[in-house]
Design a protein around this nucleic acid. Sequence first.
DNA 1: TTGTACGCGTTATCAT
DNA 2: ATGATAACGCGTACAA
Lengths: 338, 338
Amino acid sequence: MKKKTTIYDIAAKLNLTAATVSRALNNNEKISKNTRKLVKQTALEMNYEQNTLARALKSGKSFNVGVVVPRMDSNFFASVIRGIEEELYPKGYHVIVCQTHDQENLETGNINSLLNAQVDGILISISKSNDNTNVFDSLLEKQVPLIFFDRKRDMEGISSVTIDDYQGAYSAVKHLIDQGCKRIAHLSNDRTLEIFRDRYRGYKQALIDHGFEFDENLVVECASKIEEGRRITKQFLEMDQRPDAIFSSSDFTALGAIQEIKAHGLNIPQDVCVVGFSNEPFTRFMDLSISTIDQSPIEMGRLTAKTFLEEVKSKKKIKNQQTIILEPELIIRKSSSR
Amino acid sequence: MKKKTTIYDIAAKLNLTAATVSRALNNNEKISKNTRKLVKQTALEMNYEQNTLARALKSGKSFNVGVVVPRMDSNFFASVIRGIEEELYPKGYHVIVCQTHDQENLETGNINSLLNAQVDGILISISKSNDNTNVFDSLLEKQVPLIFFDRKRDMEGISSVTIDDYQGAYSAVKHLIDQGCKRIAHLSNDRTLEIFRDRYRGYKQALIDHGFEFDENLVVECASKIEEGRRITKQFLEMDQRPDAIFSSSDFTALGAIQEIKAHGLNIPQDVCVVGFSNEPFTRFMDLSISTIDQSPIEMGRLTAKTFLEEVKSKKKIKNQQTIILEPELIIRKSSSR
DNA sequence: TTGTACGCGTTATCAT
DNA sequence: ATGATAACGCGTACAA
């Protein structure tokens, strides 16, 4: 690569000091308007570009933020990231995205890489790993700004941005009950994660509140994959008393459920209603569009970024933990509109 | 954030020089096994972590690579990125992903930001912008390692990794002809981009080679969106002689086409066959699965990264431009299986 | 208002 | 085999 022009080059050209140039470029008060103008002028002419590395080394800030997500090819996470970018780019930050693929070792590795790259903070949606809290403890210890979004972990002093998963699940099940469904099954997911625990709780409470009995057999955990959705739904449909509705904690398993229900010659929503979770784009454009819960991911991203910015600004002050909870929105489509 | 331990700290503790410590940690030949062992030992004890910023400032390498894509929430680009990561992470590089949303100004802005962040290279799939070659010219001038993937631009000395779009289109249309289709329309896209030009050429040539007349009216350009696919397909179906097949240069417009065909009461594939492009996951899991072209995105990502690594390694040597072209794979599903 | 001088953490080039 | 020193490019207290 070609050599870049530094403040020294432009200082030399103007018979000034690098210090003066630096000040002029940073709009320091105590510089004459003339020199400032002159410096900026020639900086432009010489195609000067600040070396962020040097600035970072000096200031201790890299202006890089690490974002860690299970994966980035789901619309939900991609949208959250976009929200984060929208908020952070104008402030001069860069965003480094890492994927964990829900693997604990990758998560740990990514976090360490990010720390090593001197990121100014980490915004993370945790993987399914259950109990290795040590990585996060060490982050806490090192006082690296840390914000959770969507998939959080309860930690003293750490802010988080999530949606009200309990409420989302509750409203979905309430809606199914309103449609006349009597036996509502639940496709759950790893309940060591708070979001899936909350969706489960919302499901359960909605049933109880409306006079239904809660049947443990109608709840099954599985991974967020189409095939898994099919597999479990097959079990449901082969029960003596098959369910007449499925509330799925994932759009992907909801899709699998729909495929399996059709394969069994049953009609949706007449025989079985289905509601998913996340409002992935495909739920809208299927022939049989899928009811689901929207999580306003862009907003979630923006708020996560804002929380980070506040935390950075109030550096030394008393840390005030923020716990932001967004309202989910039930979107009713064909799969549950009787 | 807490202060990190530096090589000075560990030098002080061992009554050594920072230089020695540095050498020991970097496995320099001319260091006694004892001191090396000792240094590494205490480095571990003191939780030493190399400051990559300082190393970058010194070496002129940031070990960051910029990846620029139109968007990252399509499976194709997400997969390419994953391939890039798989190849680059083990080599100690980090990947900074930027989205252009197909907007010229964002593309330019992102590139400049990446340069400013001192990335060691840029891997890019260009946006639709047509003629502002200046950004790339300036990259060329600055001798920043640059690799194109998928959406390339013809530039002297710049390597690229693409698939054979011409061949992909050709085989798709050949397949439609084999199914007995007589009037094959083409949903095209911005043909200032090479990939769409090539798909158009493959379509045209396949028709000609099999004795069909090429009808300009059966080719329409539109954006890669479901709604656009519907809109154009509506026009097709209202023709006096409607087409009996649609080859779409995008899976999304193919989906729109399918929706519209159904809305017109026609059957797929009996009345109209449809083939898309990219092998997005939804093409597989639709009730009416969609025939498409697979672009082996992960492989594309890996090769792009490899090409970059080679370019970096052979720094000062004669640049040898690589033009890698992958073979596309036609995947036949229900939407075109008569 | 501007210059001087130093430090951020590393590595590379001399010496020793 | 190790030490001393300079340099990467920038920002900033201190001095002038």
